[in-house]
Design a protein around this nucleic acid. Structure first.
Lengths: 154, 154
DNA sequence: TTATAAAACTTTAAGCTTGAAATAATTGGC
DNA sequence: GCCAATTATTTCAAGCTTAAAGTTTTATAA
């Protein structure tokens, strides 16, 4: 996924773009993962889950988390399990529908996340430092249109 | 990593960009992974390794592969193990330096990859269909400058 | 009702991923 | 030549990831 086109011809530009996109996100992701580990002894998936929950004090269902984070159901189960055992998150069975459980950040989890998120934002600013604010906005716009276009399909 | 900024203020544009970038690549990656599995019964990491080797008939060292694919050493070991057991790749100990081994695609591996790569390119074209060729080139340029900037650090 | 399907979630097996420790081979200084 | 450091790779433990199968609960509808 990270190697270049194997020949030249039509349609290569999008392939090239995809490879660049992937290399860029992998590079940044690897750096962030490493720093999260070193500085906060946590992982990217845990951070993702906490970030999702932080926006929503009333909590999210497991399936909401899964959909939002673009990962499988079973995956979320494991990550939330670990967050629960670390006291950062709670899973509360609901009376209305006993199949579902509402996942929330604990007080501790919320504080911990806020601390990490502030530093994290700085890291991203640093790692994307070579992209001007202007470019950042334009790129974001393009990716947004990709996204909405994507949602139209399937 | 996939949730939005938790507040507003300076430096948010790069954070937003990062989140969009990550969501886009995860979306595309998930789709490609699924298709590779369904259509060719293979995985993204195997495809990556084969793509890297395809460009270089004389082969690559394990450490070259690791560096090129931006993954850890131990990771490559496992993937190459599986490719070897599937007869798609060979690992040849070198006389010059007996610590290293040269990894090459087999005849079969090369044919298999060529077939997959052609279809894969079509998929990428389709999935990035909403990005015009023009935009694709400009975006690629931006990401290229990010890359070279990155290589200057660390 | 009462089966039958659908939904929410968990479990499982296989594979991917990392960082760290272990092995083995080479290189450099003495 | 010899020993320490370096280099290339593998092994390992822990965690992430998916798809598929399983469990429990709720909804549907005859």
């Amino acid at each position: 996924m990270v190697a270049g086109p194997t020949s030249t011809g039509p349609g290569k530009d999008r392939l090239r773009l995809w490879i660049r996109l992937l290399r860029a996100s992998r590079t940044i992701e690897a750096e962030l993962r490493e720093r999260l580990k070193k500085e906060f002894d946590t992982t990217l998936p845990r951070f993702d889950v906490m970030a999702a929950l932080y926006r929503v004090p009333e909590g999210m269902l497991m399936s909401d988390l899964s959909r939002f984070l673009l990962v499988s159901n079973g995956n979320v189960t494991g990550i939330v399990d670990r967050l629960v055992s670390e006291g950062l998150v709670t899973r509360a069975r609901r009376n209305g529908d006993r199949r579902t459980s509402m996942v929330r950040l604990t007080e501790e989890g919320s504080k911990a996340f806020a601390k990490i998120a502030a530093v994290h934002e700085g890291w991203v600013g640093e790692l994307l430092g070579s992209v001007s604010e202007e470019e950042a906005k334009r790129l974001t716009g393009m990716l947004k249109s990709f996204r909405s276009n994507w949602e139209g399909r399937e």
